[in-house]
Amino acid sequence: MAAAAASTYKDRQFLAVIGDEDSVTGLLLAGIGHVTDPPDAQRNFLVVDAKTENSEIERAFKSFTEERKDIAVVLINQHVAERIRHSVDTFTDPFPAVLEIPSKDHPYDPEKDSVLKRVRRLFGE
């Protein structure tokens, strides 16, 4: 990974979001929502509520991070990330960037963030 080849991020232009309804609605209002062309229409967002299975979240996360090559940033609510913590923590590639964001009902806790955890570990705090 000394120098990320240009091709790994040249085509990445969308943001993806996994989160509760409010977060997704807000981010869609900002205009990040995208649905790919009809044959296999894929949305770049997933609404998670109490009834959503963990496996579904996992699948969406996998698809955004590994399968789709047009996504630059994956935004995920922290409380959702907590449900698939293992997958989030083991994903360490620079592309796409996985970003944990706070949600309305769950305040942000820096201690749980996978990247901040790494920062802390590096500086031995």
């Binding site: 991020y9 040249k10 990445r12 232009q13 969308f14 943001l15 309804e21 409010d22 997704v24 609605t25 869609l28 209002l29 900002a30 205009g31 990040i32 929502g33 995208h34 649905v35 949305r43 770049n44 967002f45 609404v47 630059a72 940033v73």
Partner: peptide
């Protein structure tokens, strides 16, 4: 609730990033 309406009408990303 406008959530559903918004989710259904999202088609093309207006907000994009380039590297």
């Amino acid at each position: 609730d406008i959530g559903y309406q918004i989710q259904e009408s999202a088609k093309q990303a207006r907000f994009r990033v380039r590297a």
